[in-house]
Design a protein around this nucleic acid. Structure first.
Lengths: 224, 224
DNA sequence: CTTTTCTCTTACAATTTTGTAAGATTCTGA
DNA sequence: TCAGAATCTTACAAAATTGTAAGAGAAAAG
């Protein structure tokens, strides 16, 4: 149940919106002005803010920039004017979207879902077949069980999983692994690491399904 | 210079847009239909796609979903109709934004900048004082120079940096580091790891400024 | 089929990591 | 001040990682 903070001083519109958003399954908090809005923002920590540009006690831009001081919660501007300058100023203030009144409720919902989807970008997992990297914990899982990789093996796998499907030359891989530390390693070293990695993550290391060799070129990770 | 792919079959509009976008500093590639558009998409690998919903040889939604098969490049729909169903369908197709004709060029630019900003969302770095973790590369830097951490040290630091400022008890830390692998480690082991980590990342390990001890409780990372 | 080239595999020493133990140090409360 | 508790530091062996070399195996070219 995402929480939404609505800051709007048009009472009729506000009430209608609240009702509509609630039927869509959102929890809605409401404020009718700048001061109350910021107060409520701090206490209810919403997942998304709907913000009227023209408030009785000041314009919405200052509210947005105040919010941006402490948070990157998605903000959608609501405005009566289709004035393009508002749009531009809103985006430059760090708004995530902008919708002009009058708008259809369904469009608002779509825009809310859109910014939430982008923002709630799940703690990204990198996945390929039955192997998963959780970069936020520095873990590698195979069929849900932890696989112990050394620092270099982990970095090597990370390169493949962040370049899924792309051909990576030996040179590129070696550069990424060793040039930062200024070391020079032998020509065969990468082969050995590929073997070690395959031994740890492939079901049948002799017939790798994840880390494929591209003869004469390099390697690539394939989804299936 | 971001590259933009414009897929639009209204020749007049297209030409105007191209000129305008170029004056704004963008490199623009243009296609007047579905087939050409997808072809060009593959060859020019744009940073953003502007996509007319109604094309002569099919609607824009199928183009968008074809693009989404292989890429998460931002897509902005252009449409003549202010029909809300289009908006909704577009977002559900994975569009990033939506703009109705007629629109002001400046608004389009603002929306392009907006999606590019979101999309080019810098590979998130975790930072504390002069120490940085780059999770997307599995690297730790101190004053911009690589610090070589073992797998466990890296994971330990990651826990602190993703829980900046929060107190973490010994138990929490040990759980996160060792329970996944089902091992039991001695009471003092965490102390030793804390020392090793401090030796590698603190300027003065005896007087840590990043990884602070909270006596009787645990440890926490502090911003300054 | 043979040769050549590229990749894989194995084995090996040097180094690093890992976990423990034992003692030193610091902090807190009586 | 002193005792007890918590934390830090050092030192140590077992285990794992790291990079190399040498040879085996596979694929492409002649």
């Amino acid at each position: 149940m995402p929480k939404i903070l609505l800051i709007e001083d048009d009472e009729t519109l506000a009430k209608n919106l609240v009702r509509y958003l609630q039927t869509e399954g959102y929890t809605v908090h409401m404020a009718d002005g700048q001061k109350k809005g910021l107060q409520l923002f701090r206490t209810c920590s919403p997942d998304c803010v709907l913000l009227d540009v023209s408030l009785a006690d000041g314009n919405g831009f200052s509210v947005c920039s105040a919010i941006r001081q402490s948070s990157d919660v998605p903000v959608i501007f609501l405005t009566a004017s289709a004035d393009e300058n508002c749009t531009v100023a809103g985006f430059e203030m760090g708004a995530d979207d902008y919708i002009s009144k009058p708008f259809r409720p369904r469009e608002l919902i779509a825009r809310i879902r859109n910014v939430l989807r982008r923002h709630t970008s799940a703690p990204k997992l990198l996945q390929c077949q039955n192997v998963t990297i959780d970069p936020s914990r520095g873990l590698v899982l195979k069929n849900g069980n932890e696989v112990f990789l050394s620092a270099l093996e982990y970095r090597l796998l990370l390169i493949f999983f962040t370049n899924m499907g792309k051909l990576l030359t030996r040179e590129q891989l070696a550069d990424e692994l060793w040039t930062f530390s200024g070391e020079f390693v032998g020509d065969n070293t990468l082969n050995v690491y590929m073997k070690r990695l395959r031994d740890k993550i492939e079901d049948d290391p002799q017939n790798p399904t994840i880390l494929k060799t591209v003869r004469g070129m390099g390697y690539k990770a394939v989804q299936s």
